[in-house]
């Protein structure tokens, strides 16, 4: 546990030692603002909630999270520091979770910096702050899901561009599996069970419930299990494929 914390600190401070942190935060805040106010019709809706803000998060994460996760392991491979890290007295589980938690904490910081949005909606109206909080929780869990996928894929290659592109495609699959367009394609001929299974794998299905303020334990379990699964795969991939 101590090792996870030590690695967590190192990783998190390395985001801020490079321009990555600042570029990521600024772009995230800028784009989420544009989406909320222009595409989401925040004002025209005339409702005191943050739905137009949260609704765009899956699409924002689709590109921004892989950009953050692509370097997690690919960079260690490229620079050879993976050899240093894995010959230090820590377990593979500690190394994988320390790096993941740092990246996740960084997205949490970014998400926390959207607080002016929350202030705005409270200033203009009287929103249900419990719903807002559930939205933030859902968004954070979804970011963790994207990150775990990205971290695992980053472990497969030393090329960050490949890690980025493949992560975007895999994450897109996880979003689209809940999209009506995709589900309609299956519902015409496949049994209901399959359609439901496909839809239950989607980030959208679970995130939409949370962003509307419905905190269902099953949605939380879904994201936690998803993260655990991809991180486990991540550890196995590195154990099998260390050298190249």
């Amino acid at each position: 546990m101590n090792n996870v914390w030590i690695l967590f600190k190192r990783e998190l401070s390395s985001y801020f030692a490079t321009p990555i942190a600042y570029v990521f935060i600024v772009i995230f805040l800028f784009i989420s603002g544009i989406f909320t106010f222009y595409l989401g019709n925040f004002f025209a809706r005339d409702q005191a909630d943050l739905l137009p803000f949260f609704n765009f998060h899956p699409w924002l994460y689709l590109f921004l999270i892989p950009a953050l996760s692509m370097r997690l392991w690919a960079e260690e491979r490229k620079s050879g520091t993976i050899e240093l890290l894995l010959t230090l007295p820590m377990t593979m589980g500690q190394a994988v979770s320390g790096k993941f938690l740092a990246a996740w904490a960084f997205t949490a910081i970014t998400l926390a910096l959207t607080f002016p949005m929350w202030i705005t909606v409270n200033y203009l109206g009287d929103p249900d702050n419990g719903t807002v909080l559930a939205g933030y929780l859902g968004s954070l869990l979804m970011a963790g899901g994207f990150l775990a996928i990205g971290s695992c894929i980053s472990a497969l290659t030393k090329n960050q561009v490949i890690a980025f592109v493949v992560s975007v495609v895999v994450c897109l699959a996880f979003i689209l599996s809940g999209f009506p367009l995709v589900l309609d394609f299956f519902s015409g001929w496949a049994p209901q069970v399959i359609v439901e299974t496909i839809s239950s794998f989607s980030f959208l299905t679970h995130f939409n419930a949370l962003s509307r303020g419905v905190v269902d334990l099953r949605d939380i379990i879904y994201f936690v299990t998803l993260i655990a699964f991809w991180l486990f795969a991540n550890a196995i991939i590195i154990a099998i494929k260390k050298a190249d």
Binding site: S14, S79, G80, T81, E83
Partner: peptide, 10 residues
């Protein structure tokens, strides 16, 4: 290790 790898930004 070969090439003395270290985290460049630290």
């Amino acid at each position: 290790p070969e090439g003395a790898p270290a985290y460049p930004d630290m």
